[in-house]
Amino acid sequence: MFGENFRRFRTQAGLSQEAVAVRMGVDRAHVSSMERGQQNVTLLTMWLAAQALGVKPADLLNEDFEVGGDLAEPEGSPPP
């Protein structure tokens, strides 16, 4: 979940893995492994990732995002 959301927010922001890595103070390979789910992240790393992307840390764990899409509509919500 974290990796998918992390990649989606990064691409929506038009940022490369390298740019996010610089903002976080980590190596680009670390960003890549987080996006692929091969790296367990600490709370500090999650906070740094959120700061680098300009989102809330909870957004990176949001299960309501569709892969490659936007927020899923909550049940009972009127259409946009």
Score class of each variant (00 low, 15 high):
A72E: 09
G76T: 02
A58Q: 00
V55H: 10
V22R: 10
D64W: 09
E18F: 14
M46P: 02
A29W: 11
T42F: 08
A19C: 02
A52W: 07
R8A: 11
V67Q: 13
V26C: 10
G3Q: 01
V31S: 03
N5W: 10
N5C: 01
E4M: 08
T45V: 12
F65M: 07
T11K: 04
G68S: 00
S16C: 10
T11R: 07
P74E: 05
R23Y: 07
A72T: 15
R28P: 06
M1S: 02
V67K: 14
E75L: 09
V67G: 03
V22M: 03
R23L: 09
L60D: 06
R28Y: 00
V67T: 15
R10D: 11
G3C: 05
G76V: 01
A19V: 06
F65P: 09
P74Y: 05
F6R: 04
Q12S: 06
A29S: 15
M24Q: 03
F6L: 10
V41E: 00
D27Y: 10
L71C: 06
A19I: 02
E35M: 03
M34A: 01
G25P: 15
Q51R: 15
M46I: 13
R36T: 14
F9H: 09
G37H: 02
S16R: 11
Q51Y: 06
L44Q: 08
R28E: 03
M34Y: 00
Q17N: 04
L61P: 04
T45N: 05
E63V: 12
M24E: 01
A49M: 04
L15F: 11
R10K: 10
Q38I: 05
A13S: 08
Q38W: 08
L43I: 12
